[in-house]
Design a protein around this nucleic acid. Structure first.
Lengths: 161, 161
DNA sequence: TGTTTGCTTCGAGTGCACTCGAACGTTCTA
DNA sequence: TAGAACGTTCGAGTGCACTCGAAGCAAACA
């Protein structure tokens, strides 16, 4: 991965309610100027070109457009999909589950209920995970409090070792 | 792992400011009745006996006492240590880092500063992780809101496909 | 007394999510 | 026109945290 310094890449604004999850069942053709090469997308997302190709290959990021010469042409929609994939990744969802979700999305409106259930379950998982982490935070703070009080006592007693 | 149904195991209350992190440099001999076999500890913690032995072997849970016949005898202190290890695990700290922390704890008061730094860094990591998850939660909620509104529109229009 | 549980060491296997490299050809850009 | 970037397929490697099994023997429990 080399640093891209030519053709400055401007991250597009993310739309709110579009096909972030995976491929939408229909994709409006990219007629505008939001075209990104794989290395630009790599730079924007922090993923490697390898990983981007892999995502496409396993069906996590399907239907990436190609130029007449066969090169991948990513657009804003793909970046949105990748952004949402990033969110799902943060939640701890496995790649296999994300692929499954992408497939459901591709299947269109008929899978809306199932997708909603997946999202709600994921939401519950995230809430639980946050609670766990906050629990851990409490434990850390208790430990730190011990350290501080022990240190304070030490300071007061002048035992510096 | 079989389910333990004899000798009901009562989880001990966790003390607040003791040797949770790893072995304290000195361990008061276990004279009381808080003695646990490896399978009892496994049942209490959800870890396997394999993993408990492994923890001891790699130095994550050092100085587990032994009976005259060489069997491990865990006590409340060990359970506290395991509870704290569980918290650290939740934070995403690697086993290697936890072992390092346990070693520092064994080394006693001289490593207090370093341990405090580790705890503070871990705390920062956890806070960042929580922020990430809350971010993901927002993204999930946006998606769910889309679903709900789409569904609502569908309901209103009577297009049920 | 027989079954279960425990002990040891050792290495191998698992599942995940990448991550990399090879090998070789095509296309784009300065 | 050179060289960087892109394309393909394929398999292998990495790092983590377990997880399991074997072998063979000792101890505890019902």
């Amino acid at each position: 991965m080399t640093v891209i310094d030519s053709t400055p890449v401007t991250p597009p604004p993310l739309l709110s309610c579009t096909a972030g999850g995976a491929a939408g069942p229909t994709r409006p053709r990219t007629d505008g100027q939001d075209r990104y090469t794989i290395s630009q997308v790599a730079a924007l997302t922090g993923l490697t070109a390898h990983t981007l190709r892999w995502y496409e290959q396993i069906g996590l990021l399907p239907d990436v457009q190609r130029s007449a010469t066969g090169q991948r042409v990513f657009d804003r929609r793909d970046l949105e999909r990748l952004a949402f994939i990033g969110k799902l990744r943060v939640t701890g969802m496995s790649v296999a589950a994300m692929v499954r979700f992408a497939e459901l999305t591709r299947q269109g409106e008929t899978t809306a209920d199932e997708r909603q259930e997946v999202l709600e379950q994921t939401r519950r998982d995230v809430v639980a995970r946050i609670a766990e982490l906050q629990d851990a935070l409490v434990a850390l703070d208790e430990k730190l409090a011990c350290h501080v009080s022990a240190h304070g006592a030490k300071e007061r007693a002048g035992t510096s070792s």
